[in-house]
């Protein structure tokens, strides 16, 4: 079964590495919508969280999905200058808060989000506190 999954993952994007408890896929923004629909069809029902990390002018947005007990980490790289990523709440409604946190902490604009308000920080807090090199 694992071989089949790996084969499918290779179609989704570049399979970076396979660890004991995780697969890492580097995906292209071009296939964004198709990818999440495919994941849904592959049996992904649960996304642990969405994390964002800024490094050298690039923000890596990683969707940590659960697939057959392993974590399937799908990574998209977007420019830190004008970071935008579409929402996936249409396919996975449960990620709503994670996307709001991503927007708040890293200043990534989540386009099409049903409720794009800040989540944790107070009005007077510094903006995008998890950005390292810019702002």
């Amino acid at each position: 079964m694992e071989g089949e999954i790996v084969k499918k993952l290779k179609v989704l994007g570049k399979l970076e590495k396979v660890q004991k408890n995780a697969w890492w896929v580097d995906a292209d923004m071009k296939h964004f919508d198709r990818l999440f629909n495919t994941l849904r069809m592959m049996g992904v029902e649960y996304i642990s969280t969405i994390s964002g990390t800024e490094e050298k002018g690039v923000i890596s947005v990683v969707y940590h999905c659960e697939l057959h007990g392993k974590t399937l980490n799908v990574r998209f790289r977007i420019p830190a200058k004008d970071p935008k990523i579409p929402t996936i709440t249409g396919v996975f409604p449960g990620v709503e808060l994670y996307e709001r946190e991503l927007a708040e902490m890293l200043g990534v604009e989540v386009t099409g989000h049903p409720d794009p308000r800040p989540l944790f920080l107070a009005d007077a807090s510094p903006k995008t506190p998890l950005r390292r090199h810019t702002i």
Partner: peptide, 12 residues
């Protein structure tokens, strides 16, 4: 998530 100091009334 983020370190904010409110003890002085200033945000930093």
């Amino acid at each position: 998530v983020t370190v904010i100091d409110y003890s002085t009334g200033k945000t930093k």
